[in-house]
Amino acid sequence: MSLLRTFVSRYVLPNTYRTTARFSSTDTKLSSNDDEPVAMPNPYKKERRQCILCKLNIKPDYKNYRLLSQFQSPYTGRIYGRHITGLCKTKQEQVESEIKKAQNCAYMPYYYKDKTFLKDPKLFDPENPIRSHRF
């Protein structure tokens, strides 16, 4: 009996199955296409990254020297580069020009960071830049 069953499954069923499968596929195409792939936006697409100033919609201003001093090194007073601050090009350019304005207006020092701002929250980590640098 078992021998017969294997014989049937091996030599008879595949053929019958193939034919029935072909018929059934055409039938579904005619009746309905519920099972077709649906056009949808990529669910695994990551969210668009934005820099911190664009995200919070802040325009750097030379009068707001407390914010600008966060982009300054506490040791040398130099402005951190784009690979450290993680800003987009336009914002980094604006920050740099506004820092220069503020320094020229004697709102901000050139060679150090104001000691009252030293404990301000860090917006980025200079030790872990986005792109490696040679320092």
Binding site: R48, R49, Q50, C51, C54, K55, K59, G86, L87, C88, K89, T90, K91, I130
Partner: peptide, 13 residues
Amino acid sequence: ESSSNNCTLEEEL
């Protein structure tokens, strides 16, 4: 006057 520009950080990274 403030010009509204979109963030291009995604393209830069």
